[in-house]
């Protein structure tokens, strides 16, 4: 294919990606160094109250926003360097917390709180998704053929459901004295409130995420299981390998590329954890990095959006995903080069 035809085919897609992905990235990067604020001016106001013999007059200096010709508050955008990053990272409080050796104090700073949750969420759900997905795939592969279709149908439901709704459906089982909370109270005899502390909410979020993603892993593993070399399996049996050893030394190595693929996708997706925060309304206990940006971008009561701070958190979030993906990407790159 000539370059010109290639360009004509790929062009529209590439333009869209550059315009709506690459360009915003650059603009976010720029925004994070600038800050837009209303201009304030110092005005000397003389206020007098009637008095005898002379009115009592007080002059005070007030600062008030400058109004433009159209009656709106004029704003200025100025270069602020790393100020937004400093505001987000709050290194002063972090230093104080570290010197006190106080973990709770550190967790009071929004950014570090969000980072802690995002990373632990990502790294804890990853093995769970892989194990649950593989177990379902093995079990389905083991089941009667006529049952496989219905099981796949049911398994696809949690995967296809809108994430916010999926999270809500789990939340409604537990909220207040919802049936599952009631059941747990009945079993333990204690008074349980699932939404009063951070760790139970996190537990529910992780449960939701595994419930949501495991079907994806399952379908891919299940397809992979169909291509396992039966001869290798048979020779393993002849060599006296137990069922567990066959799984460990024949099936899992065969599925390794798929495991890497799912892990990669899962790292990307669960690092973006956001819908759970909305669904479980957990902002007062648990927040994630992406939610932090979202929160800065939503207008506050006065209708202002903290764009520069949002940009700073967005850039920091990006740095995180790059760091997280470097190792798996390097690995696939090595494999890719090794295979040629």
């Amino acid at each position: 294919m000539k370059f010109k035809t290639f360009a004509a085919f790929v062009g529209p897609s590439l333009v869209m990606m550059l315009l709506f992905i690459a360009f915003p990235l650059v603009s976010v990067f720029m925004q994070s160094f600038y800050v837009t604020q209303p201009i304030f001016e110092q005005v000397e106001v003389e206020s007098c109250t009637p008095g005898f013999p002379n009115p009592i007059c007080v002059t005070e200096i007030k600062s008030q926003p400058v109004l433009g010709a159209d009656g709106k508050i004029t704003t200025e955008t100025r270069f602020s360097g790393l100020e937004s990053y400093r505001n987000v990272l709050e290194l002063g409080r972090v230093k104080a917390a570290i010197s006190n050796g106080s973990w709770t104090q550190l967790m009071n700073v929004d950014f570090w709180k969000a980072l802690r949750f995002t990373l632990s969420f990502t790294l804890l759900t990853l093995p769970l998704v892989l194990i649950v997905g593989l177990s379902i795939a093995l079990a389905v592969n083991n089941a009667v053929r006529s049952l496989r279709g219905p099981v796949i149908f049911i398994s696809l439901l949690p995967f296809i459901i809108t994430p916010v709704i999926g999270g809500l459906s789990i939340r409604w089982l537990f909220i207040g004295d919802g049936i599952l909370t009631a059941a747990m109270e009945w079993m333990s005899g204690a008074n349980i409130s699932m939404f009063a502390q951070a760790w139970t909410i996190e537990l529910m979020m992780m449960f939701y995420r595994v419930w949501h993603v495991a079907p994806f892993a399952f379908v891919i593993f299940y397809a992979g299981l169909q291509t396992v070399n039966q001869d290798t399996l048979e020779s393993a049996i002849i060599d006296g390998a137990s069922r567990w050893e066959r799984l460990r030394f024949v099936i899992v190595p065969h599925l390794m590329p798929l495991i890497v693929f799912i892990a990669l996708i899962h790292l990307m997706d669960s690092y973006r954890v956001f819908d759970e925060i909305v669904a479980f309304s957990s902002q007062s206990h648990v927040i994630s990095l992406q939610w932090l940006t979202y929160d800065f971008l939503t207008p506050d009561d006065a209708g202002n959006r903290a764009i520069s701070r949002a940009s700073a958190t967005a850039m920091l979030t990006m740095v995180g995903i790059v760091l997280l993906l470097i190792y798996p990407l390097k690995r696939t790159w090595r494999d890719h080069k090794g295979s040629h």
């Binding site: 915003p24 956001f274 990095l289 764009i307």
Partner: peptide, 19 residues
């Protein structure tokens, strides 16, 4: 494209919103 896929959407929205 694979790298673009990994970007958190909030990063992109932060870029669109002021524009």
């Amino acid at each position: 494209a694979l790298i673009f896929r990994a970007l958190p959407h909030s990063v992109l929205v932060a870029g669109y919103l002021p524009v």
